[in-house]
Structure formats: structure tokens, C-alpha cells
């Protein structure tokens, strides 16, 4: 599948379909399973400085009509304990991108250095979790605060830095430009959209955290439009995320301007083998269109 090989931010990927952060990322073996299933790479769970249990259950609400809501609350074992999980995946040849979250620019920088020391290929900054007080989108929806984090991390590490943006903003382009001006090597978009569910029988919110993040097929049009807008506003590569479950979805993100994609919620049904199925399907689509590489398709829908 040489057709699918691609290089983004100086990192080689065997195909453009990565495991998204937060899915299967607590254990190095699970990351490895996604890679062995055919993923082009994997993004770790977002890791912080200290162990964090996350919110009490219910942490998810699944619904056949609109998809999945989650408010896990950034559970993670802390960067120190997480090292063995990353090392396990790396020892199996997995292409690993390290996701980190912090409350300050300095914390992001320290965590990114620790990830770099573990040997990951790139850093993804979680500037977009919609359900963690003091973290994520609370920082990442302000262009200046976002830029401060990116600058701090860029001056702390040599690795490529991907800024993962929140869709909970009125102006995707200015967030994208802020990340680019601050030195980000790529933009990952989108994270989940803030949402909630209320149980009509017990008359109370279902998620213990009240609100959470919506993912799944419902958010694909939002992700596509976000990637489209950011593509027209910046020159750095974009990693497209949101509602991907079929090869066509991957291709549409490439056409909108994504150079890579990440898949999360669909892993629930498809497991590790989903990645291999998506990769084969995308390869077939490229051939059908007479395209010689992934990069030929990136942003192609903009040439109307």
C-alpha cells in the first residue's frame, strides 16, 4: 500500500489513518493492537502531570440517533507511570504521537519534553477537551492563551507539535492562524462538541459531569467544515478528526484539506481491524480517481 505512505510534519506514516487520542490509549498493548489492526499511527490518551481518575460514572451516553457523549474527565496515570505504556508500543514498532494536557503553558512544555524523552514521533497538544475545568478548551478557545502554550512547547522540544483545536468556537480560522503564528507544525481538528443528555424519567442529567463531548457520525459535517475553513486560513498541515467510520469519510477529509485523519468513536464497533479496512478502502478510492498519492488528494475539493 505504498500509495498510502505519507509524510506529515517530517514524520513518515504508512497510511494517513491514525487512532485518535482518548480511545484505547491507557495501555501500550491496546495502542499496539490498533497499529497491528492497520492504523498508520496512534495518538496516546492525553497525559497530564499527575494520576487523575477522571469523573465518576456515568461517563458516557450512547444513542442510536445522534452518537456518543462522553465526559471521561481526562483520566490518565500521569506522565511518570505512562512511560512504560509508550515504551511498550514503541518497542513493537508502533508510530506513536504523544498527547498531553496541562493547566499552564509551562506544564504543557514539561509534559511535552517528557514525551519527547520517551521517543514519540510528534506531540499533540490537547487544547480542546470540552469537559475539564482549567484545561482543554478553556485554554484553547482563546487564541492568545493557545498561542502562549504552542510557543512554550515549541521552544521546549524539537519534535513536531500538533495543536488540537476545539470546535466550540465561532471562529475556527483565527484559532488556526493563532496556532500557526505561534509555531505549530500542524493543526488537529476537531475535538468533541460540548453537549449533554437529560434523562426524562429521573429528570436529571445523565453524565455525572452534566455536560460532555459529542462524537460519532453526527459531527462529521462540522469537522469537515472546520478543516475546510482552517485549510483556507493556514499553510501548515491539518489532521482531520470527527465522525470517521468509512473509507469515504477519510477521503472527504483529505479533500477538505486534511493530510492525515484520526478515528475514535468508530473503533467501538470496528476494533483494531477497522484501520486496515479503512486503509484498503481509501487506497481503492485513490486508484479509482487516478490519484498517485494521498497528498494529491489533500485539499482537492478546494480547486472547484
Amino acid at each position: 500500500m505504498d500509495l498510502l505512505q505519507t509524510r506529515v510534519t517530517g514524520v513518515d506514516f504508512r497510511n494517513p489513518i491514525l487512532l485518535a487520542s482518548g480511545i484505547w490509549g491507557e495501555s501500550g498493548i491496546s495502542l499496539t493492537r490498533a497499529y497491528e489492526g492497520g492504523a498508520g499511527g496512534v495518538v496516546t490518551k492525553s497525559i497530564g502531570s499527575e494520576p487523575r481518575s477522571g469523573y465518576p460514572n456515568p461517563t458516557i451516553e450512547k444513542n442510536g440517533t445522534w452518537g456518543l457523549l462522553n465526559a471521561m474527565g481526562l483520566p490518565n496515570p500521569g506522565i511518570e507511570s505512562y512511560g512504560e505504556e509508550v515504551r511498550y508500543a514503541l518497542s513493537r514498532g508502533v508510530r506513536v504521537v504523544g498527547s498531553v494536557f496541562g493547566g499552564t503553558a509551562e506544564e504543557f512544555a514539561r509534559l511535552s519534553q517528557a514525551m519527547e524523552a520517551l521517543g514519540v514521533a510528534a506531540i499533540e497538544l490537547n487544547l480542546s477537551c470540552p469537559h475539564a475545568k482549567g484545561y482543554g478548551s478553556e485554554i484553547g478557545s482563546d487564541p492568545e492563551a493557545l498561542a502562549e502554550v504552542v510557543r512554550a512547547v515549541k521552544s521546549a522540544v524539537r519534535l513536531p507539535v500538533w495543536a488540537k483545536l476545539t470546535p466550540n468556537t465561532a471562529d475556527p480560522a483565527s484559532l488556526g492562524r493563532a496556532a500557526e503564528r505561534a509555531g505549530a507544525d500542524a493543526i488537529s481538528a476537531i475535538n468533541t462538541l460540548r453537549g449533554m443528555a437529560i434523562d426524562p424519567v429521573t429528570m436529571r442529567p445523565i453524565l455525572s459531569h452534566v455536560s460532555g463531548g459529542l462524537s460519532g457520525p453526527a459531527i462529521k459535517p462540522i469537522g469537515l467544515a472546520f478543516v475546510w475553513q482552517v485549510f483556507e486560513a493556514v499553510h501548515i498541515p491539518i489532521i482531520g478528526i470527527g465522525g470517521i467510520s468509512r473509507p469515504e469519510d477519510v477521503f472527504e477529509y483529505l479533500l477538505a484539506g486534511a493530510s492525515l485523519v484520526e478515528v475514535g468513536t468508530a473503533v467501538m464497533e470496528g476494533g483494531g481491524p477497522l484501520f486496515g479496512q479503512l486503509a484498503r478502502g481509501v487506497s481503492d478510492i485513490l486508484v479509482t480517481h487516478g490519484l498517485k498519492s494521498v497528498s494529491e488528494s489533500v485539499g482537492a475539493a478546494h480547486r472547484r
Binding site: G22, E26, I60, L68, N70, P75, V267
Partner: peptide
Amino acid sequence: VMKCAVNLCDACAFGPYH
């Protein structure tokens, strides 16, 4: 430990199994 119970969150990772 179970959180999502639907094969996503990895909380119940046990070797190469969920």
C-alpha cells in the same frame, strides 16, 4: 474498572483484551 463498557475508553484493558 469499567467506564464506557463499549470498547472505547481502555479502562478495563487486561493484556491485549478489553
